[in-house]
Design a protein around this nucleic acid. Structure first.
Lengths: 234, 234
DNA sequence: ATAATCCTAATCGTTAACAATCTTGTCAAC
DNA sequence: GTTGACAAGATTGTTAACGATTAGGATTAT
């Protein structure tokens, strides 16, 4: 039962959820996009029940929103949710760096550097989507090296939702983390400077948040009534 | 859509999940107990589909375990998961106290004290289950006062799983937090001593963890083969 | 021409029956 | 008497059909 870590049956389920997570991460799936059951059935070649369960899973993670009798849509985090999410990341992620230094082995850090190189290469080669995805994955990779499954999952969810937030409120120019900040974090880890690594992560997350305009959503009609109501009042 | 915080349709779903959470919290539902679909249908007076969705939700929170073709069981956190969970709580909960001091109003603190009184009364009156439940709920209440929905949910899940851990590895005598430690935390909050409140929370969680015997599970056969194999070898 | 109403089509939600799997008890053979 | 296979019962998983709700468009009346 617990000797083997995972002998799960929901391999199929988990796989669909993972695929949608990936699509959200590299912004192929934008906030508000409708996730039709029929389309997803065809896309993944599975029955409606599987899709339904997967969507429920994603909704419980607040990555999709389930409207009654309307269907499933990629979530559109509110400004309040966005601040909550980044606040949570500021709480959770810096301590992970200390844990990484306490537990991770040399090959683990090498793996992180390898990840960073892939990220830079994708950016330079103009593979924008892959660059965005790897940029987000950097944070989950750090969480994984910290060796705590609970924190790992929490960070993973927050990173995915952050991707949605950047899609909604982000500057169209800077669509993801600047990788030089990732590089400096790794540098501090290499030097076993736990304190500095944590501070760098803090400022990195703050920069990420500062490059958002939480005042108004980008391509977000979403509430035509109050939108045009405001227009008529002005 | 977002003007009203929650206009959810899954009121029923959410309600069932909440009820099972409560039962786990006050240890009416012990780790490993089978959650038969038919029984739950009868208990809640709903169709099998609802129960099925609720169980999937609970499984995604790792409060129940779903075995293929076997059914749903209340989760039995492993020793590794237990250390992960308490480590996560040590990361998440102390910062919440600072947030409470920054944001909470006076009536909020009064509400916490009211909660504490109810906790003490239940304990003194010998209402053990209610005392246990309120003891766990204290932590989620703190998270709620911090005003961050993400952290609130994370802590809620961790508290529920902690209840399972105490049921599995805990000293039969001390089944929950000592409420005097909760009292001293509130005291520090009243005095606006953020640093001390955080330290008190740290030691409180550490005490909680120290009172566990992660070496062997309490009433946990779980692997009869190696259990009796060891007996025959001795 | 515009607005309102009705109608049709499509999609989601639920129920019920069916199929597959596991558990348990029984029976027969060695 | 024990061990093995077999079968019955129960529980879970899946599929399919039905009902409900909503979106979009067409028609009609003002």
């Amino acid at each position: 039962m617990q000797p083997m870590p995972e002998s799960r049956e929901d391999a199929e389920e988990e796989w669909i959820v993972e695929k949608i997570y990936e699509a959200v991460l590299d912004q192929r799936l934008r906030p508000g996009v409708k996730l039709s059951e029929a389309e997803l059935c065809e896309a993944f070649g599975v029955g409606r029940m599987r899709i339904r369960r997967s969507l429920l899973l994603l909704a419980s993670r607040e990555v999709v929103e389930l409207l009654p009798n309307r269907g499933a849509f990629v979530a559109k985090p509110t400004a309040q949710q966005a601040t909550d999410i980044f606040e949570a990341r500021l709480i959770m992620e810096p301590p992970l760096l200390k844990m990484v230094l306490e537990r991770a082995q040399a090959p683990d850090l090498a793996e992180l550097e390898q990840h960073l190189r892939a990220e830079s290469q994708a950016r330079e080669a103009g593979r924008r989507r892959e660059a965005i995805r790897l940029s987000g994955l950097f944070h989950t990779h750090v969480a994984q090296l910290a060796g705590n499954a609970v924190m790992m999952r929490a960070v993973k969810d927050l990173v995915a939702r952050s991707s949605l937030i950047i899609g909604l409120y982000g500057d169209p120019g800077l669509t993801s983390c600047r990788d030089d900040e990732h590089a400096s974090i790794i540098e501090a880890l290499r030097a076993h400077e736990a304190e500095q690594a944590q501070e760098l992560m803090v400022s990195h997350l703050q920069h990420l948040k500062e490059h958002l305009d939480l005042g108004l959503q980008k391509h977000a009609p979403q509430n035509l009534v109050q939108l045009f109501a405001a227009e008529s009042l002005s």
